[in-house]
Design a protein around this nucleic acid. Sequence first.
DNA 1: CCGCGTCATCTTGCATGCAAGTGACCCTAG
DNA 2: CTAGGGTCACTTGCATGCAAGATGACGCGG
Lengths: 229, 229
Amino acid sequence: MQDDAALESQSMQLMVADGLRARIIAGELETGVGLSEIALASEYGVSRTPVREALKQLQTEGLVQIRPRVGTFVSTPTRADIVELFQMKEILEGAAARLFAARGEIPELEALRSNVVASDAAVARDDVDGYAALVGDFHDLIVRGSGNRKLRTHYTMLMNQLAYPRLVATSLSRPGRLVESDAEHGRVLAIIVSKDESTAERLMREHVRASQEALLGAMTFPGETGMAR
Amino acid sequence: MQDDAALESQSMQLMVADGLRARIIAGELETGVGLSEIALASEYGVSRTPVREALKQLQTEGLVQIRPRVGTFVSTPTRADIVELFQMKEILEGAAARLFAARGEIPELEALRSNVVASDAAVARDDVDGYAALVGDFHDLIVRGSGNRKLRTHYTMLMNQLAYPRLVATSLSRPGRLVESDAEHGRVLAIIVSKDESTAERLMREHVRASQEALLGAMTFPGETGMAR
DNA sequence: CCGCGTCATCTTGCATGCAAGTGACCCTAG
DNA sequence: CTAGGGTCACTTGCATGCAAGATGACGCGG
């Protein structure tokens, strides 16, 4: 129920898909909730057809689950899924850091420097929300800096399944994790600058794992993750 | 082709999607060729709707490209795409080998042993086609043995984009590569058995890279690899 | 009171019709 | 012969109607 009427330059199904994806990631649509085609159609002011195609795409992206003749639901990752997603995060970000380190001076490196500077400042003034946003940018920069678009595409897809952005703040709620995280970012940057590929991968993986452990420690588990119904 | 009419237990769109995917991977449908919805519809004996949904899925899988109001075409990977896909192959298989090594005695390990035995035999009798098939199984077993289903899902998606199965035979055409490849498989197996995670990852990555180099050396390049545009 | 069978309703799957845009071909003029 | 313009056929995007299946409720019988 929003600004559809205005920017209708692109296809309806893309609008619906993007809108739905954003809402799912943001947690606006809770996991397990039913998505009626007809309801979404009237909500977006289109017919069922583009809604169906959008849902189909979100299904192959792993965000929704279509049960034939029953209904479409926001995917509810199992605990095993979450573990697997975290593994993938570690693998892909580690590999990205390695590739990044091998590339030398690229635009993303300068952006990464700025990010770390800004992060230090945010930590200094204890701006958790600001830092959380910078963390998102940091990891995205790492992945972009790999120079491998497929890696980035699939990384994004996987992180969407985790609704990752919402988790960052949680992981930072752990006492001491904020400054620790910031320090790790600085070390990763330094080692990328030094073009030490292997160490870059190792440091990045360690950083990702540390974040995950902080998160898991601060997390009330799936089904009830601050997602009350 | 009306073999479909018999086993229509599952959805039409799934049938179409699977059929098309298989044909694309097998190289039956060359890259760049146009896929008319209406033509496919009559070919599969269904209406345009399920065909459209199948194509939409194949698009998000990266196998076809839908140009609005123009047509749908089998994706034509650029050279950069291929490089990226190979990088991903190395990353994911390396990571899979590491995870595999950490898991110890699992069914996939026994299957892997059988595979290596069969591969040795195939090489001994110079059965290239047989060995090529076993190579496919070997790599799939490695990925399955990671125990990470997301890894396998995305790995499969990426390899589909490469139409990888067709490439294996090509890479083995290089003189000496056959026995070399087989020996590498044996070493990978041995190190997984020994549960040396880091070495498993390294060996696997080296093996993947060696295969790629053999392939690139034996390959008349995109544009003329049976991949006309 | 409890269990079971039937039915109504809601869901998606598929077929079809229409609209709009694109690209190619042909025809014409210079 | 070449360049330009205009038309036409073909493409996908979207809307709608119908059918089949699944789910849950309701009522009946034990």
